[in-house]
Design a binder for these strands. Structure first.
Length: 571
RNA sequence: CGGGGCGUAGCGCAGCUUGGUUUAGCGCGCCUGCCUUGGGAGCAGGAGGUCGGAGGUUCGAAUCCUCUCGCCCCGACCA
């Protein structure tokens, strides 16, 4: 490729909308252009990278025995009614109508379509197992698109679906995919961590997330260096024994104190000069069918995913102030478990069970209660692990010290079981002649997101540093002065040789000053740069520069031509 | 959706508070010519804007008011 014909337009300054380095660099290097919030054009240079990643994904999927197909983006409402997700998936799915006012969704994922295909195609156990995959555009109307292609509303995803006779088969296929995913992310030179995850709206019980480690990541993960345990924040369990020691001592008598205008935990701890650890906060939550009071230690945060699971309900939100006043008889900020005006279920975090003589709201304006105790003063209806893990908690597996890190979710795998096959009637006749539901797994990779994750992990103040495997070009030829005869002769000779050897090469043939060309080369981050300057060109010498290490080496052109495919060995 | 902020040339911004000397500016980029060629040079000339849009106030609106659209940040949400 000749730069002069490439439509690579770099920017000196990143557009102000970009916050994180990958987004800034993708815009500055001209890989993508924004069309609307969360909707991007892949420019030729960006598309080259995207295709490379797609090919890596495709190769590993094919190696694992999965079959590629292509499903439609436009999906009829009826299918989603069958699975029951037309309503539960909510506003995330972009819904459209055709001219006859029939409803369609733009596919955010393809369980429904693929299950429909399978229930029509698979009749017998002899056709199983089978795994299908596609690399395709997905639409999700994200509440808040962010960070360029990391959280986009239209993006490229690889989604795969496995179909088995039984759980054993699923486990085998799941392992295969898991291994393929590791290979894919290894090839992309990503540093990642695999964590246990919640399966959410997808269903099923076992689920793993593949997280690229990055400070700018939106997800938080827990990792134990001593035993290797990993989980995302929603999932990470808490082994609760920290407070047991503090639990000794007598129950003191309950006491009401005036706390005028003291509403927040912070104000309260300052006012009463107590630690938030001696405080129990009471949050009023609304589910689809009930209102509950949730008790948690003052310095902890409620993990709503865990709470949802414990309550076995759908829909969970903090009650508004009107509801709180109605339930507790006091304004927001003075809620407690003792003397609630209306009788509601009281849910407590495990940690609270071990607390004694703690402080709570009094359900009365400007008042709190000291020395509150469970059983004596109020009863708990349900308890469980409902808080977020913190770095001072122990590893749930080995009780070691855990680390908390930020990550970008690259891939997610699920053991779905029969959730979709049952609701949509995907069955097969087994060897025993009996009809059974097919056992499914599903596996997703955010293909376009990988680009951002790679850049996030591989850049410096000058630009992108592509790993060879996904670099848009392997080599950039940089003739310093295109008006110098010897320079351009050598540059063209090398360029043609690279082309004939099928090594991806770009030549910066623009009649620009050297500074501009060097800056642009650093920005777009091609792994190897061959600089041709007029002085050395006279001696038939060029300079090879590695973008990642910054190493330079002068090489004779003839030696280089003889050994092009080993170009890296020169440095 | 709740809270906050921003829309002025391809990108980054000033002007708005206090309406009129601004024919709407500046830096970068873009075009032409000269000059220059190892890290975003210099000189000279030039193109590019319905100041996000629609109403309104006014003799007069980028500037004030109302509505609207778009974008960004924080939060909640999320495979």
């Amino acid at each position: 490729m000749r730069w002069s014909e490439s439509l690579i337009n770099t920017l000196w300054q990143a557009p102000s909308e970009a916050e994180i380095s990958s987004h800034k660099l993708m815009l500055r290097a001209g890989l993508i252009k924004k069309l609307a919030a969360g909707i991007y054009v892949f420019m030729p240079l960006g598309l080259k990278v995207l295709r490379k990643i797609e090919n890596i994904v495709r190769e590993e999927m094919d190696n694992s025995g999965a079959l590629e197909l292509l499903m439609p983006t436009l999906q009829p409402e009826q299918l989603w009614q069958e699975s029951g997700r037309w309503n539960t998936i909510g506003k995330e799915m972009i819904k459209v109508q055709d001219r006859r006012e029939r409803q369609f969704g733009l596919g955010p994922t393809h369980e429904e379509v693929v299950t429909d295909i399978i229930r029509k195609e698979i009749k017998s156990y002899k056709q199983l197992p089978v795994t299908l995959y596609q690399i395709q555009t997905k639409f999700r109307d994200e509440i808040r698109p962010r960070f360029g292609v990391i959280r986009a509303r239209e993006f490229i995803m690889k989604d795969a679906y496995s179909f088995d006779q039984d759980i054993d088969g699923l486990n085998k296929n799941y392992k295969k995919m898991y291994n393929a995913y590791c290979k894919i992310f290894d090839k992309c030179a990503l540093e990642y961590q695999i964590v246990e995850a919640e399966s959410g709206i997808m269903g099923g019980n076992v689920s793993h997330e593949f997280m690229a480690l990055a400070d700018s990541g939106e997800d938080t993960i827990v990792h134990c260096p001593s035993c290797g345990y990993g989980a995302n924040m929603e999932k990470a369990e808490i082994v609760n024994n920290e407070q047991k020691k503090a639990n000794k001592g007598k129950e003191k008598s309950i006491e009401k104190v005036n706390t005028p205008n003291v509403k927040t935990i912070k104000q309260l701890t300052e006012f009463l000069k107590i630690s938030p650890k001696n405080l129990v906060k009471t949050l009023i939550y609304k589910t689809n069918d009930q209102i509950v009071a949730v008790l948690i230690r003052g310095d902890r945060e409620v993990n709503e995913t865990k709470l949802l699971k414990l309550l076995q309900c759908v829909g969970l939100e903090l009650a508004n102030s009107d509801t709180i006043e109605k339930i507790t008889g006091a304004p927001v900020g003075f809620t407690g478990p003792v003397g609630l005006k209306e009788k509601i279920k009281i849910v407590a975090d495990n940690e609270v069970l071990n607390m004694k003589n703690f402080t709570t709201g009094a359900n009365k304006k400007d008042a709190h209660l000291l020395n509150v105790n469970i059983e004596r003063d109020f009863k708990i209806d349900i308890s469980g692990d409902i808080r977020f893990i913190t770095k001072s908690d122990q590893c749930p597996k080995c009780a070691g010290h855990i680390k908390i890190k930020k990550g970008i979710e690259l891939g997610h795998t699920f053991k779905l079981g029969s959730k979709y096959s049952e609701s949509m009637g995907a069955r097969f006749i087994g060897k025993d002649g009996r009809e059974k539901s097919i056992i499914m797994g599903c596996y997703g990779i955010g293909v376009s997101r990988i680009i951002a994750a790679v850049i996030e992990q591989n850049n410096d103040e000058n630009g992108i540093i592509w790993p060879k495997s996904i670099a848009p070009y392997q080599v950039e030829i940089l003739p310093v002065n295109v008006n110098d005869k010897e320079t351009i002769q050598i540059a063209e000779k090398l360029y043609k040789k690279f082309l004939s050897e099928k090594i991806e090469v770009i030549i910066d043939d623009r009649n620009e000053r050297p500074g501009i060309k060097f800056k642009d080369a650093d920005l777009i981050g091609i792994p190897i740069r061959i600089t041709i300057g007029s002085k050395k060109a006279k001696d038939n010498i060029v300079e090879i520069h590695k973008r990642d290490t910054g190493e330079n080496k002068s090489v004779n052109v003839d030696d280089l031509l003889k050994n092009l495919t080993n170009i890296c060995s020169f440095v």
